[in-house]
Every structure is written in C-alpha cells, then in structure tokens.
Design a protein around this nucleic acid. Structure first.
Lengths: 246, 246
DNA sequence: CCAGGACAAGATGTATACATTTCGGGCTCG
DNA sequence: CGAGCCCGAAATGTATACATCTTGTCCTGG
C-alpha cells in the first residue's frame, strides 16, 4: 500500500556484515553493525529493521536487539514508533537544514581545537585516509569513497581534545550521511568537493585552526548546496504531514 | 567497603516523586522522573539506581526500567558498567571542562538564533521563570532556585528555532547541573550570578542576539570559575583510576 | 466487480524465569 | 589477632512465554 514513499526493503543478511553463522553477539556489535551500515549508506533511509530478523541474524534474543535499537534511536540513527518496526531515520527538510547548521558550528570548533594537537603518526593516518578517499574516487568505487570520506571526519572527531564536542560531531556526521542519501541530487556522484579534505589535513597538521575551521565551514555549506532541499520536492512525506496531534 | 568516596545511598521513594502507589508507568515516565531528579540535584552524583527497586517503585517489570536506564545512559545522565548497578554520572575534572566549553559554544549560538523569535506570550513565560527564580533566591529556598534556574536555560533550549542545537543544549544543561553538584565550592550557595538571567531575557526579547550570546558565554565562564576544579582536589576517584583495561 | 469485514501471520510490548556475577559477612586456619 | 576463603543474598544478563497490536489476505455480500 505504501502511503509514504518507502524505501522499505528488509536488510539482506549480506548488508549487515558481521552476522555470520549466528554466533553470539553483544548489543554493541549489533549497534556497530547497523551504525556502520547506515553511515556508509548500505542501509538507506527508511530501511526496516525487524527485531526477530536481527535476533536470528546475530544469534541472540530480542532483548539484546532491543537494547541496540534503543541506543540507535537515542542517537537519531533510526526511528521507533510504538508497535511499528524500527526504520532508518528519514529527517525532513527542516531538520536537515538544522543538522547542517549544527554541524557547521560544532565541526568548525572541533577543527580549531584539534589543529596542531596531532602527533606525527596521527597526521600520517589522516593523510592515508585522504589518499584512500582520492584513490576510491579516481577508480570510481563510490561505495568506498563515501566510506573513506566519512572516516576523515570521524577521525578528526575522535581525536579532538574535547571529546564532548567530538562525540557531538560524530553523531552529526552520521546524520549528515543519512540526509545526503535522502536528498542528493540524482545526477551528482557528488560530495567529493575539490581536494577539501587534503587541504584540511594540511591545515590541521600545520596548526592553523582558524583556517581549518573556515575551510570546514565552507566545505559544509558547499555540501548542503549540493542537496535538493526544495520544500515541495521529492520525498513528499505524507506520513508526517497527515499525522494529527495524537 | 567503599573504595571510592561514594555518595551511594539508594534513592528514597520520596526522591522520585511520581512513584505513588505503584501505578503502571511507561519508560518515558521513569526516564523523566530520574532526569528531573538529577537535574534538580535531588539525586546527587553517584546515587545508585537498582533496577528492582525502580521496577517496584513504578509498578512495572524490569524490562521497562532497563529501557529507561539505557536511554539515560545514552544521554549521559547515568553510568552503567557491566554487572553493576546504574548510578548517576560523576564526570571527572577534564570532562567537566569539556562540558563547559561545549556548552559555551552551543548555548551562545542558541541565543543568537533564538533572540527576536519569541512571541509576546513566550517572552512573558520567560520573564515569569526569571521572577520565580529570584523569588526563590530571596526567600532562601535553594532547591526551588536551582530548579527555576535550570528551567530558564531549558526554556531557551526548547524554543530555539534549531531544535537539533536545542536538544544538544538541553543535554549540556543537565550535565552542567551534575558537575555543579559535584564540584561546587563548599561555602557557595552560588550559581545566582547577578541578574544574568533577567538581563538575558531582556536581550532575547529585544532581539539582540550577539549581546545575548556574549552574555551567555560570560555567564558560563563565571559559573565554571565558581567551581573547585583543581585536579588533585576533592573527589579522588580511585575507582576509575584503579580500573585496568577490562 | 468492488466494498467491507473477519481472520491469520507476524510484528512489538511486557512480564517473568533462570543463569551468572558481584560483594559483603562470617568462619576457619595459621 | 588477622588474613584468606567460602558462601549466600541480591544485583544484573539473557532468553522466552504470552498479550496485544498492526497489517495484508481472502472471503463474502451487495
């Protein structure tokens, strides 16, 4: 029936990698698997996540799955409504704009704080991530490219001296990934903006926090502008429109 | 035995208000009750929260309680370690500094965005909160004063046009409340700084976002300076120091 | 042929049984 | 007298049974 444009297929067992053989898994394992799959856009927005299917996949009872799903809901990775299957979040246009605005604020500050604090070894790691991204881009492996691009931002979030802000940035990076999957303009392979990540790495290494912050800010503005955020357009979310008070 | 300076008493039934008569309660009810109790410092950092006690108090099974506790952990209200009772969070000095830094960043921006967007009715509500706080302060009802002070910030977070940032601010306000309870200098009744909240309300109403942001920033700097954050000092958290990898 | 309702499959919501772990009291042995 | 061990109360970890709700199918009556 599909009142709303639902991407709703079930995740194939292959989509959620570490489910092999139904070995015992902790709720952290399940959380990580789904998180990673959403981050890399293997699980598109709207994907449904039935508890029983997951519990069989991971070889645990529904209790564990439910704990993982509750945490994923708290982190805005999925949405849970009473008596309905959990599904990967589908933020509307307004929330998308708010996510970008919040991320610009937070990520800029993270750049300021992180610049000049990375050890040589860490800088090398960072440069490798950037190189991998470029390689994936050049050889057209789009899946890998998205993955590597996310890893650049996550690396910086993870190594920010202020871990409270770092954690916020981590969450915002994920939500950004979701809205990109939702709203990216059809033709665009997109999101490989110049060599922004390479230049960012250089500024971070050099310790120029202000320039890094400015670059990150502009990077995110450019990214948002690549999206198709005309209110009326695409995923006409009838569901949320037609949902009265209750 | 108490290896760490544990505030650890169990919450009396009276501490968690809406537990009357063991009526059925949703996980949201439990979440809210504990959240509110922590926010207003009725449940001090380190307080233990046994699942069975809570389930009896609220008249539900442990499943519901566990869901509430999982969410509270996600929001950094409580800490859960494997096989140990949940307890109200006790951030260390470093995390405290990070919380304040993050909150300065976020709350300043929230002020910028919120200034000039409140309806007349909303401004009235805000002024009433400020008035209530002052009244509580003047009559020495410290509990009420803390509550009202928190409500001012939460009101602004709730009515920020950017709800993603608003939600972040809400979480940071709570964590601030926790660290104030932990690290406030003994003698200080504190945290009623001049008439900052009153002036803030005026600036917000007038629409001067920049001034409001600056005031909020300075307000938070002053607040942090009231705390006793000498690394070596008070709550010598042996527990976390002596906890090896596992 | 279509509209409408009964029904069944399958999902989540909740409670509970049982396994496992923690931790303190108290006994025993040096 | 004190150190160390044993053990049991009580907490959490996990699985599962059962209730309830949602939803799609199929049957029936107009």
């Amino acid at each position: 029936m599909a009142t709303a444009p639902d991407s709703g297929k079930f995740p194939s067992a292959a989509t959620l990698a570490p489910a092999r053989g139904a070995r015992k898994a902790s709720d952290q394992t399940i959380y990580d698997s789904i998180y990673e799959a959403v981050l890399t856009q293997r699980l598109p927005p709207g994907s449904r996540l039935p508890e029983v299917a997951l519990s069989e996949m991971f070889g645990v009872s529904r209790s564990i799955v439910r704990k993982a799903l509750t945490r994923l809901t708290s982190d805005h990775v999925i949405e849970q409504r009473p008596n309905q299957m959990a599904m990967v979040a589908r933020p509307d246009v307004e929330e998308t704009r708010q996510i970008f605005a919040a991320r610009r604020l937070v990520e800029s500050e993270v750049m300021r704080l992180t610049a000049g604090t990375l050890s040589k070894a860490r800088v090398q790691e960072l440069r490798k991530l950037v190189k991998d991204e470029k390689a994936a881009h050049d050889s057209g492996r789009d899946q890998d490219r998205v993955h590597c691009s996310m890893e650049v931002h996550r690396f910086l979030a993870r190594h920010c001296p202020n871990q409270v802000l770092g954690r916020m940035m981590r969450d915002l990076v994920l939500r950004t990934s979701i809205v990109i999957a939702l709203y990216k303009s059809p033709g665009i392979t997109a999101c490989f903006l110049g060599d922004d990540h390479g230049r960012l790495a250089t500024l971070i290494a050099k310790g120029d926090g202000e320039a890094a912050a400015a670059l990150a800010h502009d990077h995110l503005v450019a990214l948002e502008n690549l999206l198709d955020l005309n209110d009326d357009s695409r995923p006409i979310d009838l569901a949320s429109i037609l949902r009265p008070p209750s």
